[in-house]
Write a protein that binds this DNA or RNA. Structure first.
Lengths: 355, 355
DNA sequence: GCCGGGCTGGAATGCGCTTTCCACCGTAGG
DNA sequence: CCTACGGTGGAAAGCGCATTCCAGCCCGGC
């Protein structure tokens, strides 16, 4: 039989919650004992009988510990932060899936934050994670080359790490921070090689935002490798645009408007490639008959579509897992660690061998 | 000039953090004043000069409030929980994007949890959210019809709501809970009608897990409407499988193995449809020449692929926003509210008009 | 038979912050 | 000139929990 609850002072709008002391009272033990019974406190035991009583009381009161209070008392939360640019983007959601899985495995949960495509908000989100006292944060996404922006980010990261959190970035490396690096240059170069091998000699590029690191890495490596292999990439055939479907579409439109249409167009990511496909179709340009198209990322939902899009696969699972591993292992002492995730060319119908 | 920090008791492994009292000391004011200066406490003012001093001190100490402590003191966190089955699935990530955006707008952050395709873990995640004391939780995803499972979920939800959190589900409605309902039956029926109109008279269905509510709604509505419109759907042409790419592939394989191949196959979601496409290709069955295929969801990355997949579009943005709105408005008093999100048939090349 | 030591339970402290409650200031009104 | 009152800063109480420290218990050994 439970006696009347003492009038607790609750902020307005709050509902009475059952606390550990309620459980203790119901079980007729002290708060300390209740806590120990529930947590199996280390190097300390509580009589099985008592333990049972406490557990039963907790059960019948539908007690759940308050994670915030636990975090305070223990001095650490059980959450890991994940910062992305757009969770709806398959690239990020693929990484998010892996991170979520990894966190789950070790009993952590993830706090998701999205810059909503505004890279200059990254540092704000890092600050948010600091406020939240997340154990670790994983930053996914290409940072811009803008030095001021990066300085702000580093600054925020510094504060975060000073507070004891560990950090890992995935995508483009960040000097001094544990990074999982996706081999964009290697993949782009390999793609260029594969296209040359298939008989293409002229190429255009849908290059993404000029300052976007990842886009730049892919674009430059592709161009260099294609030229090094004997192919031609006209400067006027390198068009920039947003890293989005619309960006790809308008860039493709611009490119197709130029004379000397290249034999193949490389979009620096699949989403842009899709936009390009659409633009081509709208203009009556057939793919791959009139122009071949290749992308980058190998978005999962695009596999096995006809005609298949030639692209470069990024093992997102591997990348996400690696990032989680780096972040959750904590800072491994001195040097910033670096993991390389290799990419792989996937040839499909959008770039058939040329006669 | 700061004097020596008093030795604070920190759990092992912890780093000293700058707290509000450090700020107060540095500014030469009391803790209360510091708090008020920082928060602009209601119906209470602090002298502009003092306020400045505190702000400056906080700034120079790189102080950030501890969200956990604030949550304790205020009695409420600033987080909203989102429960999905697989964040890598475009359906869920689309909703997640909208929810994230909505939460962000009102200064909340989202805690993401994934069942990893195990619907019977939903109630665990609800319990997790309760521990975390999230202000609200949004559950996305088709719940199974399994009564025991649903009972557990309801149970967990009851505890959650008793603790003062509001909850909303999106997808399939849940009796007594604020729900945003996606008009699956309407969409499936409309699709059936559109196919009949294009001249199809026999159809097969790739039906997802038998107990899956959403799958069932789409399947049954489609079958009913197709038959009602004069078409034929043989019982043997309704195949079940997992709600995944592989599920679609193997279901398609099974279906194509039967005699009397139907003219069109309706997969209850796009991902399954893709698997089906792949299986067809592997078996040498051409789409749409030998068999037409339609899906459901209109996954964003599938738009404008050739041949386009006929499907039913779900406005994920709208659904996510609506869910967030329901959840964040709190429980609107008595009746559980319900929002209907209409779907729209999108006809593409995978189901050309029949001669 | 008595004392020491291992167990075990309870009281108390503190985590960082918000928010009463109280004390104190100055000023205006009687 | 004294009191009453609005305004403003500080002390302190808690939010829910983990944990340290201490007290009591029972057992065995001398």
């Amino acid at each position: 039989m439970t006696d009347v609850l003492p009038a607790r002072r609750y902020p307005p709008g709050m509902v009475a919650r059952v606390t550990l002391s309620d459980v203790a009272r119901a079980a007729g033990v002290s708060l300390a004992t209740a806590s120990r019974a529930l947590n199996g406190s280390s190097n300390r035991t509580v009589q099985p009988a008592l333990r049972e009583r406490v557990l039963a009381a907790a059960e019948s009161l539908r007690y759940t510990p308050d994670a915030n209070a636990q975090a305070m008392a223990r001095g650490a939360t059980s959450s890991v932060g994940l910062i992305v640019h757009d969770i709806a983007d398959p690239y990020f959601s693929g990484i998010a899936a892996a991170v979520t899985r990894a966190a789950d495995r070790v009993g952590l949960h993830v706090t998701l934050a999205s810059t909503q495509h505004q890279p200059d908000r990254e540092h704000e989100l890092v600050a948010l994670m600091r406020r939240l006292r997340t154990r670790a944060v994983i930053i996914a996404g290409g940072r811009m080359a803008d030095p001021e922006r990066e300085a702000r980010l580093r600054d925020a990261l510094g504060d975060l790490m000073a507070a004891g959190a560990s950090v890992a970035v995935v995508g483009q490396p960040l000097e001094g921070i544990d990074s999982v690096v996706i081999d964009n240059p290697g993949g782009a170069a390999a793609l260029a090689g594969a296209l040359l091998e298939r008989g293409y000699t002229t190429a255009g590029v849908l290059g993404g935002p000029p300052e976007h690191q990842t886009a730049r890495a892919r674009r430059e490596s592709f161009v260099d490798a294609f030229r090094a292999g004997g192919g031609t990439v006209g400067e006027e055939h390198v068009v920039h645009g947003l890293f989005t479907w619309e960006g790809g579409a308008s860039a493709m439109e611009a490119l197709l408007g130029r004379p000397d249409r290249p034999q193949v167009v490389f979009a620096v990511n699949d989403v842009m490639a899709l936009g390009a496909l659409s633009a081509a179709r709208a203009l009556g340009v057939r793919v791959p008959d009139d122009v071949a198209v290749a992308g980058f990322d190998d978005i999962v939902t695009l596999r096995d579509v006809v005609p298949g899009l030639t692209t470069v696969r990024i093992p997102l699972d591997e990348a996400g897992e690696a990032a989680a591993e780096l972040a959750l292992d904590g800072m491994g002492g001195g040097e910033a660690r670096r993991r390389l995730v290799r990419t792989e060319v996937v040839l499909r119908e959008s770039t058939p061998p040329r006669a």
